[in-house]
Design a binder for these strands. Sequence first.
DNA 1: TTGGACTGCGGATTTTGTGCGGAAAGTTGC
DNA 2: GCAACTTTCCGCACAAAATCCGCAGTCCAA
Lengths: 155, 155
Amino acid sequence: MATLDGIDRRLLAELQAEGRVTNVELAQRVGLTAPPCLRRVRALEDAGVIRGYHADLDASKLGFAITVFALVSLKSQAEESLRQFEDHMRTLPEVRECHMLNGEIDFILKIVSRDLQSFQEFLTSKLTPAPNVASVKTSLTIRTAKQVPGVPLED
Amino acid sequence: MATLDGIDRRLLAELQAEGRVTNVELAQRVGLTAPPCLRRVRALEDAGVIRGYHADLDASKLGFAITVFALVSLKSQAEESLRQFEDHMRTLPEVRECHMLNGEIDFILKIVSRDLQSFQEFLTSKLTPAPNVASVKTSLTIRTAKQVPGVPLED
DNA sequence: TTGGACTGCGGATTTTGTGCGGAAAGTTGC
DNA sequence: GCAACTTTCCGCACAAAATCCGCAGTCCAA
């Protein structure tokens, strides 16, 4: 956990909100000139605080109408079984997120698919028959009210 | 849903994976020169296909140790009640995502917090007492095996 | 053939990125 | 307690690179 000063936090907040600002603009916003601003950003990248940058795409405009959350329980919670399941999830492009949870649900998945048919095809041919899967409960997203990336730096 | 050709799709895939590539680099990767490449990107931005760009930050390195999924049921599913709840969620910085679901669970939330104490403070003072909330079931994330933004353009 | 859309080229402007001098803050030794 | 040293980081200057505009040529489709 790196030691960050106030300027670093403002840099991160700005870049999280608007990842393609120019360095000169960014420097103005945080009250620096461009060179030290760039050096700080590079340092944050090298330290792994900034993992990368991503375009935020409109899924519906690209023909991905379906977002589903799947609650998965496994038959065995042995570490090797968990790893094996996670490795499998990493190979499936429809699975965008895979989180291991406490409690009786073992994993939650976020799945993005083009339509209901291709989702069900995915579910029955890729997810449910995966080794060690005990149960899968899925919930379709009706609408998304909020979708903000990252962490709440604003407080 | 915009009409995209193969070059557009490759542009989007590249920008989703690496949102800060320079335009000249991007142009090379998709087989264009820089000016038409930039015009395509601008057009995709204007069309809303690209909603924006965001830095991907390491939550743990910034002191946000806790990610929680909360399954929320409301007392009333009237449209006005749903809207009211969504509006409230939009005001809470800890709530990073809020999706309305089908089935008996009404909403799923992704919540990011600094530590267990501040999360429980948030839960008992902000979420559970929110108007119209019937029940909240939370699950702590043990570890995250996969976290990929956006849509599966690679297929 | 003509219109429309898009590409590639050239060049002005802006941005990125590096080397260097100097100020501020913290540290060591006396 | 204080001076000298070290460290760190800023801002300036300048070179390299990318952005982004006007313009002319090209490729389809009507």
